[in-house]
Computed example of a mutant assay.
Amino acid sequence: MSRELVAGVWAMEGRASSMFLVADGDDLVLVDAGVPWDAGTIREGVRDAGFGLGDVDRVLVTHYDVDHVGALARLDDELDATVYASDTDGRILTGERKPPLRGAKAVLTRFVSVPLVERPDLEVRFVGEGDTVGSFEVFETPGHTPGHLCFVSDRLGVGLLGDLVRGTADGALRRVPRVFDGNRRRAGESVRAFADRAPAFEVACMGHGEPLAAGGSDALADLAARLA
């Protein structure tokens, strides 16, 4: 099931995180892919939005965690889309590297995420700071994972924030719980730096908590100011 936040932006609630579908001009974009058991939720959500998985042109991956890339391999027989991820996290997805073992989250990633995430049979392209994918600009926001990315479309007024922050029911943004950040200090620095350099956006799509249909940049600036 999906719900339309604003015209052309749909949210799909998975078992452990939210996924999103965005109409970027004539292209359809899937944002993150939940846990492996969310494949059916994604199929249904895309269908509710009036499309099929074959209509998806690309997949934007904010970071490598089991609740953000888990269902890709269970959809790759229906998807004909290119996956865009950071070089750091994307090479874990392709099996070209293993996550480091330093820190509690790294251990969790290696011994929980990696065994549960199958390698998708999809083209994976690596992107970084300043690259563009459709109308979305790429921003490197390390901390939650070493290769965490955010994407912002100035034209659409949409920010895809992954697990950089989480949403609250009162329309604010908060940090994710400390235990889930791989490097808490770097994650805080990324919040402040991203707030400074990202173009304004209204819609904020996060993996956890309530997405914002309006006021995204303002909410991000408020959080960054509290961290200063």
Rank of each mutant, 00 (worst) to 15 (best):
P120Q: 11
G50D: 06
P177Y: 08
V9S: 11
D80C: 10
A200M: 00
F136N: 04
D163T: 01
D121Q: 13
S18E: 02
V152Y: 02
E210Q: 14
L60M: 10
L5H: 09
H68M: 14
F151T: 03
C150A: 15
R197Y: 01
V66G: 02
R166E: 15
L160M: 06
G209H: 09
L160T: 00
F126R: 04
L79E: 06
R58F: 12
D218P: 03
A85L: 05
K98H: 13
P177R: 06
R102S: 12
A214V: 12
A172C: 09
F180Y: 13
G95S: 10
T88H: 05
W37D: 15
R15K: 14
L122Q: 07
T109N: 04
V56C: 09
D76L: 08
L75D: 12
D222C: 02
L5A: 09
G182T: 03
D48F: 05
R47S: 14
D57F: 04
N183T: 07
G147R: 01
L75M: 12
R125Y: 03
G40N: 14
H208R: 13
V114R: 12
S2D: 08
A106Y: 08
G103R: 01
L5Q: 10
L164V: 02
A7S: 14
I92L: 08
A39Y: 13
G70A: 11
L161F: 04
V29D: 11
A224L: 04
R175Y: 03
A104H: 03
G134H: 06
T88L: 13
A195C: 11
L21D: 09
R91N: 04
V191G: 05
T168R: 15
F51I: 05
L227C: 04
D154K: 15
D222E: 15
L21A: 09
E4C: 08
L60N: 04
R15T: 12
V22T: 08
G50H: 08
P100S: 14
R97V: 14
T62G: 07
L72C: 08
